[in-house]
Amino acid sequence: MSEDLLRTGDLPEEEISRAENRWVLVVCAITVLIVVTFTVSIAFFRDAPPSSLESISSDEIHRSGEFVESNLGTAMQLDGSAVVRLVLQQFSFSPSVIKVPVNTPVTIRAVSADVVHGFLVIGTNVNAMVVPGYITTVRVQFSHPGEYTVPCHEFCGIGHQDMWAKLIVGSKADFPVDPTGKQRF
């Protein structure tokens, strides 16, 4: 077979090296282009994944601190921004209907009461994992009012397929700032 058609030396090594070197340059250019593209998107558009590195004890979250039941949901801040606090557990979100104002900086803070969960606000770039023992923080601004679907997107147990929430983006007027800081939506 091969020995009959092509003999050693038919294609000189120099010719092969030249072709390969040209290709290596192309590959380097492609690689640099990819790296530059995502670096620029981080530097100029803050297009980076959530990486908050904050820890929390998951057996205390229901009893005290930031994630007790009365503190969950959307809290308007004095500066006009909103903070959403969520607890994820087998197999539901608390609260399961999340309401946020349109065109407003929103900080979502989520914790897990048991196993690894995740959430995705379909149609947006909100996509994060919720790992027990850590607080996941996502910053976002919704520019289109409407109802969004929010599935848990990491396998969390036999009831995983039933773990869905809704996120409603509504008018700013419906989210007045409460000076006492106690009101939750």
Partner: peptide, 27 residues
Amino acid sequence: FGDPEVAGGPKFMHALFTALVAVPTFL
């Protein structure tokens, strides 16, 4: 990338190295 237990720096470093691992496939 979407996990809370790793900071942005190491994630970015892994993204850079991932771009390099495309090189042997191109070759």
